[in-house]
Amino acid sequence: MEYDLVIIGGGPAGLTAGLYGARGGLKTLMVEMGMPGGQAANTDIIENYPGFPDGISGPELMQKFMEQAMRFDLEIAMGLVKEVDLKSDPKRVITDEGQYLAKTIIIASGARPRKLGVPGEEKFTGAGVSYCAVCDGAFFRNKKVVVVGGGDSALEEGIFLTKYASEVLIMHRREEFRAANVYQNRARENPKISFRLNSVIEEIVGQNKVEKIRYKNVQTGEISEEAVDGVFIFIGTEPNTEFLGGQVTMDERGYIITNDVMGCSLPGVFAAGDVRQKTLRQVSTAVGDGAVAAMSAERYLIESEQRG
């Protein structure tokens, strides 16, 4: 079946694009590999999304996004996108569940947590190593955990983990955090939180689960060990662009380069949200991207029809 618009990814950008596309009368399909909502659906509380002065949980907000988009007959297909052909007419999206044809495509495949790349990380993923505090925090009730990172996510998730853990150690490779002052102040005021600055994990150690970390002071070179039950890693993200096969222009880190209307380097192909090169990755910016991308796709279709 051929669609006017196929959206790859169901996070805030994809859901917004789906809302705008379907509401605009385009036959629109959104392809998502898991539960719609992306990383936002794994966030405990979102405090800076306009319209919710008391904050709202990530899962609840994403559920509202999905309900609103589906109200305008957005179609949703589950499946992992394996490859795409963005140069054919129509364009093709190939998933592990089937193939879809599209006149236009919006890539909103988002980004995934970046890994430390240290010994023990892969071995203990799911056995003490986690990239999602909301998903796994309850498993560490009355236990000691370390949070790695210095940005908003690291401190925000560290604060969240104090709901369960008896002690939260936040480790950062630099002397100062990059996180907003509001998160820094909350973390410093929390009696369950302590800090290790100028430090990096060298190895995650254990038998069948995480038992301790081996870490280094980057200023002195001193190696130390600390007994912990869990390691939560929040050191940034990497774009989900491997399936594109280099068909659109990307920067050196793999983020898609777009123009001011979300257009990519190929006609009829747009990108929105965390997958594209940008300075701020938030739900609010993803929503803006998704709206612009959908309107640009609609404009492209109109102009294509006019050209005959």
Rank of each mutant, 00 (worst) to 15 (best):
R186M: 13
T249L: 13
A40K: 06
Y183A: 01
T279Y: 13
T279A: 15
T241I: 12
A227Q: 14
L116T: 04
I94C: 01
A17W: 07
G268E: 05
V228R: 07
G246P: 07
L266Y: 04
I94M: 02
G79Q: 00
F72D: 07
N208V: 09
T258P: 11
G21K: 09
L15T: 04
Y49S: 02
D44Y: 14
G221K: 02
K163M: 12
D73H: 13
A22F: 06
E175H: 06
K192D: 12
R307F: 04
F195M: 00
N181D: 09
V31T: 00
V205W: 09
E121M: 07
E167D: 14
D89H: 12
G37K: 09
K82C: 03
F65V: 09
I257M: 13
G14L: 09
G221F: 03
R196L: 15
G126F: 09
R188S: 08
D260P: 06
I170D: 01
I256W: 12
G221T: 08
V283H: 04
G98N: 00
Y164H: 15
Q184A: 01
A22R: 02
K27H: 12
Y183Q: 03
S304Q: 05
E2S: 03
G128R: 03
V146K: 06
G150A: 01
I107K: 09
I235S: 06
S224D: 14
G79F: 00
C264Q: 03
S296Q: 10
V200K: 07
G245R: 05
K103E: 02
G273Y: 11
T16P: 05
I256N: 13
I256S: 13
E175C: 02
F232V: 01
K87E: 13
H172K: 00
E252I: 11
A22S: 15
E156P: 05
S265A: 02
K143M: 15
E75G: 01
E167V: 08
V269D: 04
L5E: 02
Q306D: 10
V182E: 08
L301N: 05
T279M: 14
R114K: 15
Q277N: 14
C132P: 12
D73P: 03
E32M: 04
V228Y: 09
S130A: 12
P239G: 12
N42K: 15
P239N: 13
I8R: 00
L244Q: 07
P191F: 07
G117K: 07
G51S: 03
A102H: 01
V168L: 06
K209W: 03
V93T: 01
N142C: 09
P113D: 10
S130P: 09
R174Y: 03
L301P: 01
M171V: 06
R112S: 15
M262D: 12
S153G: 08
V146E: 10
N185A: 13
T237C: 05
A102C: 02
I76T: 02
L244F: 10
E203M: 11
E75C: 00
V145D: 10
D229M: 09
F243I: 10
A179W: 02
M70P: 04
V31R: 00
R214H: 08
R174E: 04
G117T: 07
R71Y: 13
T162P: 11
G14I: 03
N42R: 14
G151N: 05
N190A: 08
E121H: 03
I256V: 12
R299E: 15
